[in-house]
Amino acid sequence: MNAARADHAKPLPALTGLAGEFYRWCAQGELRFQRCEDCGRHRHVPRELCAHCASSKWVWARSSGRGMVFSWTDVVRPLHPAFAEDAPYAPVIVELDEGVRMLSRVVDCAAGELAIGMAVELVLTQVSDQVWLPYFRRSKD
């Protein structure tokens, strides 16, 4: 890969620490969130402690992968060169059935059709040798 292409490579998550664990589950085909073993609450983004009860005990609990669009923006003018060819594209906040919200993208839907409250479902998408990103698509049901 030459330098110019390297400059335009899409940013990828660092596969270290708790984020690394999150993305290793994605690479295995599963979206999982931390669930506190004491109070039972799910959380995202990954944290060392439960913000509700300060417990440091948790498990990676598998998500239903179902949720709805909480907010969105249609990026018409990309502000990072790696996303120039994607535009227009729509970062969304998805609220999962487990109660957590996450930043993602809806892949099968033009921005003009996006709406808050739209039901979506997980579609894990490989973007590099090691990284699968948890994207969403309109729910089939």
């Binding site: 940013p11 993305y23 907010s71 969105w72 594209y89 970062p91 808050i116 973007v127």
Partner: peptide
Amino acid sequence: DFYLPFGLTAPPQWYALMARR
């Protein structure tokens, strides 16, 4: 780890999510 890979890279995009909601 959780914004940039999805293309959320700059201030107008962060705040647009707040404005839209």
